[in-house]
């Protein structure tokens, strides 16, 4: 089939949203649009054209057990058997979050907040996830603890090394600016003023530097991890 025919693309997108595709074709189509953002936008446009029909459907409160079941299934799927520091310190959790980062945060917030009357653990506002060259998250920046502050911590303990330090950089338009030294121990946090962060879309990076940090105002050692700033922290 020729998938580049605009009319066919439109028709497939609409049939996908309408739900008239056989289940197997639908899954094939999902794989197709996963690598075709332009086509995914056509699909999104159809979902938005037809979703007003759903807003007129009577809303019904789902029972709380639905949430508990979801939680149990997600825990089984995402969490290692006994994370050292609960879910917050779990590498698998952050790895999952790095995959889900970006605009997807919006969907997760809806997902978490969708069940009222339930006490949830405070969900950190993730400002950036910094991944190493193999794509594994190594540092995470979250909003807080105070307004206007951002906490940066190691997702997993980095190798202790007294001859080097880890320095954080904000990179706006390709120009690095030093933001301070990080503490590599698991559980240690470096707090920086949110105002010093580059705007969303620009980069945070961590480089390996002498113990007292770079003396030139520019990274001198290798850049170990980097990640986009996802949002402006509150």
């Amino acid at each position: 089939m020729r998938y580049d025919d605009p009319e066919l693309r439109e028709l497939l997108a609409a049939e996908y949203v309408l739900g008239t595709m056989p289940s197997r074709s639908r899954r094939r189509f999902e794989r197709l649009i996963a690598g075709d953002p332009a086509h995914a936008r056509v699909v999104g446009a159809w979902a938005d054209r037809l979703v007003p029909l759903d807003t007129a459907t009577p809303a019904e409160e789902p029972p709380a057990r639905v949430w508990r079941m979801v939680e149990a299934r997600i825990d089984r799927a995402a969490a290692p058997p006994a994370p050292a520091h609960g879910w917050f310190g779990s590498l698998e959790f952050w790895r999952g979050l790095a995959v889900a980062a970006g605009a997807a945060a919006a969907a997760l917030i809806i997902y978490v907040a969708a069940f009222p009357g339930r006490t949830v653990l405070p969900v950190p506002t993730v400002v950036a996830v910094l991944a190493d060259q193999s794509g594994d998250p190594s540092w995470i920046a979250v909003a807080g603890p105070q307004r206007g502050e951002v906490s940066v911590s190691a997702v997993r303990a980095q190798a202790e090394d007294t001859r080097h330090s880890f320095e954080l950089w904000g990179i706006t338009g390709g120009a690095p600016r030093p933001l301070g030294l990080l503490r590599p121990q698991s559980g240690s946090v470096a707090i920086i003023p949110a105002a010093q962060l580059p705007p969303p879309g620009d980069l945070l990076a961590v480089s390996l530097e002498p113990p007292e940090g770079s003396s030139t105002g520019l990274p001198t050692g290798p850049v170990l991890s980097r990640g986009k700033v996802l949002l402006t922290p509150p």
Partner: peptide, 30 residues
């Protein structure tokens, strides 16, 4: 209830696919 449960697990697994440029979150979730 089963459907909603499956859906939210799917939302969790596929959250990385969601992109606000491709349509509203309501449309995507629905």
């Amino acid at each position: 209830e089963e459907v909603l449960q499956e859906s939210f697990v799917a939302v969790w697994q596929r959250a990385g696919d969601y992109d606000a440029a491709r349509g509203s979150a309501t449309g995507w979730l629905t």
